[in-house]
Design a protein around this nucleic acid. Structure first.
Lengths: 203, 203
DNA sequence: CCGTTTTGTTATTCCGTGTAACAATCATGA
DNA sequence: TCATGATTGTTACACGGAATAACAAAACGG
């Protein structure tokens, strides 16, 4: 993680202010369209002076990034933990666990999907998920062709996000167990089979 | 198409103004971020008075809708024409034709994908494509389960958009012929196979 | 407790939105 | 062709948010 060094003891006022601003933004995103949220609205809800926002962030997007980075780091840990078991545990179970996790963190995912409307953030999330699968999915590692791997991981990442979006929009109707089956057959199995067919015919 | 009746003879000044505004927006979207485009910028480039914009559109998004509706109507005609041949022509060829079409209309698709950052517009585009496949894809019509069909068409639509995005970002590197193979195996074949497996196990 | 840092208050500048009134221009049919 | 209605341009205005500046008040940390 390239960036500024993280000092051990941050001023408690700074920690508090940043937390209040993050919480305010999260609340607002769940209530209304992200594009319609003003800095003033954020600071008012956070019970913080207007200028204080600019003392910590350059823009609304930067604050959103910080919020999502926290959530994605958590998600990544979760997926990585699952990936280590992927040889033993069936893919169907892996899928079920993913959707159970989403169910428990529905708010985070609503924010994540809502903020897909910000192009930069969307591509960042896609890249994060794609990288995770590239590292964790053994069959993909064995494919030599870089283009095919790029295509496949991109497809998996966007398809998974799309599937999650569809699920949340349908009030999480099919159970996580059923969604696990969908995840396995529609996303993972399908992609791996297609990758096999494509690398055989040398794309 | 529900809406206001379309009179045969529109005032030429109105036609001209709306065309100028559309062209100005298209040019601007190709140059910079959609969110950063102001009404003033649009009217200035269109060489039209500021207030004239509001005499024709309620918002920037509405103008963008009009731009995309034109392009999507064209695309839809193209896809429908392909669909009618889909029994005779192989899916691989259908995919090749789609990507050749995209290559010829790269600007339109760049705009379409860029404007995905507007949530409302994105879901509208997804719905349009999904509906097209629902009507034209024979194997999907035979599936009784409405949830599965909804899931499958949504998956096809978002996957296709995602694939197009990936392709344009990679400078249209694999040829349309190769992309046709990808389209067939990664999107259509995969989805249909998965749908078969899922409806068999009754999702 | 005192110096440092952070936060709050107030004011200011700039820019975009959206509306209104009136003048000028254009289109069209009698 | 020319009179009438519709469209466009010009100017002005109110409103709100973005972003910055200067100074006062409060809180931290040693």
């Amino acid at each position: 993680m390239p960036g500024k060094a993280s000092p051990k003891h941050v001023d408690p006022r700074v920690k508090r202010t940043r937390r209040l601003l993050r919480e305010a933004l999260v609340g607002l995103i769940l209530e209304k369209d992200y594009a319609a949220i003003s800095i003033k609205e954020i600071t008012t809800r956070a019970e913080v002076a207007y200028i204080t926002f600019y003392r910590h962030y350059e823009s609304r997007d930067q604050l959103l990034m910080e919020v999502l980075d926290e959530g994605l780091a958590d998600l990544r840990v979760h997926i990585d933990r699952l990936a280590k078991q992927s040889d033993e545990v069936a893919l169907e179970t892996e899928g079920r666990l993913i959707f159970e996790y989403i169910q428990q963190h529905a708010d985070l995912f609503r924010i994540l999907l809502k903020s897909q409307s910000v192009a930069r953030i969307r591509s960042r999330v896609v890249r994060t998920i794609a990288t995770t699968y590239q590292k964790s999915c053994a069959p993909l590692e064995r494919v030599g062709d870089r283009t095919t791997v790029s295509l496949a991981t991109h497809h998996i990442a966007t398809s998974l996000l799309s599937l999650i979006e569809w699920w949340l929009e349908h009030d999480r109707h099919p159970s996580p167990t059923e969604m696990g089956k969908v995840y396995k057959s529609l996303i993972i199995d399908s992609t791996l089979r297609a990758v096999g067919a494509l690398s055989a015919s040398s794309v």
